[in-house]
């Protein structure tokens, strides 16, 4: 438990199932995330990690079970979905910045159109966020004109600009060159210490050990093992977990 973690649950998943056609990707995930908690999700490729965190802001629809985010149940009700998307920020592996907009406009678009901020207020906030990400000087460039690490930090700023209560990260450093990984991990570390609730899919085990409150290990659509990082890495219970840890630590 970190100093920010509370006992209030903010995400409650009950027996969540998901199929792609006939292919059973999530096979009954039941778990609760508390306000301020930082969870790292790891597991082999194709185990359903991305699918799971994408169900939380309903980029994917789950077909059985319930997901409750900040008191709102995810259903087909469009109003609920839009409310939840404002509370949940997401950072993608491929950044997914809007290439036709400057970095600054990438960040201000959501606040202006969804939170209905004035242009001036939105730009003020965006510049402050870029400052916090350490890239204030890149505000007026286009995404294609900055490095991958900088793009990912713009993407983090874009998500934070909606003032979310929860941040989802789907392998935020996997598309980056080694020397850029640390600059992204640095801002994520800073974010964690500010008390944000974070769900991070990553293979950065150093980051998990240092920042996470809990590590969840996914395999074939189920949570095989979950534990605090010290227990998880030093004393794994399942063979599948042991194998995975030994394989990842080899690189």
């Amino acid at each position: 438990m970190n100093e920010n973690t509370t006992n209030d649950p903010i995400i409650i998943c009950e027996d969540v199932h998901k199929w792609f056609d006939d292919f059973h990707v999530l096979k009954g995930i039941t778990t609760t995330f508390k306000k301020g908690e930082r969870a790292v999700i790891c597991g082999p490729s194709g185990s359903g990690k991305s699918t799971f965190i994408r169900t939380i802001n309903r980029l994917e629809e789950h077909q059985r079970g319930t997901i409750i985010v900040d008191g709102i149940e995810l259903s087909n009700d469009l109003r609920n979905i839009n409310l939840i998307r404002q509370e949940v920020g997401m950072v993608f592996q491929q950044f997914n910045l809007f290439p036709h907009l400057s970095n600054l406009k990438n960040i201000t678009l959501g606040p202006m159109k969804v939170r209905k901020l004035s242009k001036r207020k939105a730009e003020e906030e965006a510049l402050a966020l870029l400052e916090r990400m350490g890239i204030a000087d890149q505000a007026y460039k286009y995404p294609s004109e900055v490095s991958g690490g900088q793009q990912q930090r713009v993407a983090i700023a874009r998500a934070l600009a909606m003032e979310p209560k929860i941040m989802l990260f789907d392998e935020p450093t996997s598309a980056l060159d080694p020397e850029m990984i640390s600059e992204v991990l640095d801002v994520m570390r800073e974010l964690a210490h500010s008390g944000m609730t974070m769900l991070v899919v990553t293979h950065e085990m150093g980051f998990a050990r240092e920042v996470a409150d809990r590590v969840m290990f996914f395999d074939e659509g189920v949570v095989v093992e979950e534990a605090a990082p010290a227990d998880f890495f030093d004393n794994p219970q399942h063979d599948r977990t042991k194998l995975f840890i030994s394989q990842t630590l080899q690189h």
Partner: peptide
């Protein structure tokens, strides 16, 4: 597809 998803994720309808 990532462009649609990113737009949805920042809350655009």
């Amino acid at each position: 597809r990532g462009q649609h998803e990113a737009a949805q994720a920042v809350g655009l309808n």
